[in-house]
Design a protein around this nucleic acid. Structure first.
Lengths: 220, 220
DNA sequence: ACTTTAAGTGGACAATTGTCCGCTTCGTGT
DNA sequence: ACACGAAGCGGACAATTGTCCACTTAAAGT
């Protein structure tokens, strides 16, 4: 993950880089195993539910040892994230393209921010089970939990748009952009969002509307 | 936990009821064990750190079986919560008394809300390790995790004050009070707050200021 | 004092995550 | 072709949380 300036839209938005490029290629037996593991995991989880499948189940069904499984995916969260990888990239593409289009249409920055948050709510809803698994992982472990690239991308995107809104004078220059971006995202943390939906029973529309009101009324 | 109308301040604020009152009293050997367990747990955790002490450690050091330990405290979270019980009650008292005083002084509802949030930030900071343990526990398990009485009290208090602010015309009547209250609290969820402090490195002051700006600019 | 019984007790056991480490195999350089 | 080292492999094992259940005991009624 690194920051790239996207000239057309004059703000810094993140892109996810699939690899540093410097690492040695994966051995092909290993690649075959990885593919098999992912296929098996997807099938098992879709049949029995994400939380009801254990790492041992997956290893057994894929015909590999647990050591092999853990060599590829450091923990269940990383595996869950890998299962979403393609859909996440597509989601990311869609969002970036839409942002570019909105910029072309001279849309307000805050409007873009609201649109992205709504999209993120949709994504959180669709993949809440996998995301909840992915969320676990030490808070300070570099590439796990909230620091995993997809979560980081969400944060950097929101932060970038909020900063753009500040630069455009739509939001006060006093705003603490990094902290505020985190706060806008806090209700979308997988376990929090899942709590709202299941335990509190809030509809997606209510969640979206309430968040929109907050964003739409940031100072200035 | 039930709601009581507090007449002096004309809003519904929650109080925690220690027990329904109908249950048979605890056998005295059991009470002694509970006290010993709590004392031992407190000592072990203060010496080695909350996360580094296991339930088995505590049972061993307290001279009871694990079954006994789990009979009193259904999981590590409940034990952690019990360790905070006294400090939490004192905190709760302080907050309620301050609210009453502020009401007497005709302070703005939003000001009260901001003050409570600041207090909650202080509490989250002081007890973050124990709160992080307490947080774990299924999202839909009635009295665990986010549904545990102390968390519920936080939520009901914030929601009550926000509703009062709406009733007083300080915030738009369109506001979705339950959802918005949850969103104001989301950044204070133990693991989220801990992430801000440790991984992001935000100071308490920045967190408080950013939250205050959001509260202070809710619509209307 | 004696009986009764619900509550309490303890430790074995299940379930799960994640680690370790000796053995195997790929693929690369010679 | 062949040797060699890094990468891969797998299953035993450690750690931890939480459950179960046969046994024990406090304390209330007679």
């Amino acid at each position: 993950m690194r920051l790239l300036p996207v000239d057309e839209i004059q703000i810094d938005l993140p892109i996810v880089n699939d690899s540093g490029g410097a690492e040695r290629a994966e051995r092909c037996d290993a690649a075959a195993n990885r593919a098999r593991i992912l296929a098996v995991a997807e099938r098992l989880m879709s049949v029995r539910g994400v939380a009801e499948v254990t790492m041992a189940d997956i290893a057994r069904a894929a015909g590999v040892g647990q050591g092999t499984l853990y060599r590829r995916f450091a923990n269940k969260g990383e595996l869950s994230l890998a299962l979403m990888d393609r859909q996440f990239r597509e989601f990311q593409d869609t969002v970036m393209r839409q942002i570019n289009w909105m910029v072309g249409a001279r849309a307000a920055r805050l409007g873009q921010l609201e649109w992205v948050l709504e999209s993120l709510i949709g994504f959180a809803e669709k993949h809440s089970a996998l995301l909840c698994e992915a969320e676990r992982g030490g808070v300070d472990v570099p590439n796990a939990g909230p620091q995993a690239p997809p979560m980081m991308w969400q944060y950097l995107t929101i932060r970038g748009l909020l900063q753009a809104a500040v630069d455009a004078g739509e939001v006060s220059r006093e705003t603490d952009v990094p902290v505020t971006a985190d706060m806008l995202l806090a209700p979308l943390h997988p376990s929090t969002f899942s709590f709202y939906r299941r335990a509190r029973g809030y509809s997606i529309e209510r969640i979206n509307a309430a968040l929109r009101r907050i964003v739409g009324h940031l100072p200035r």
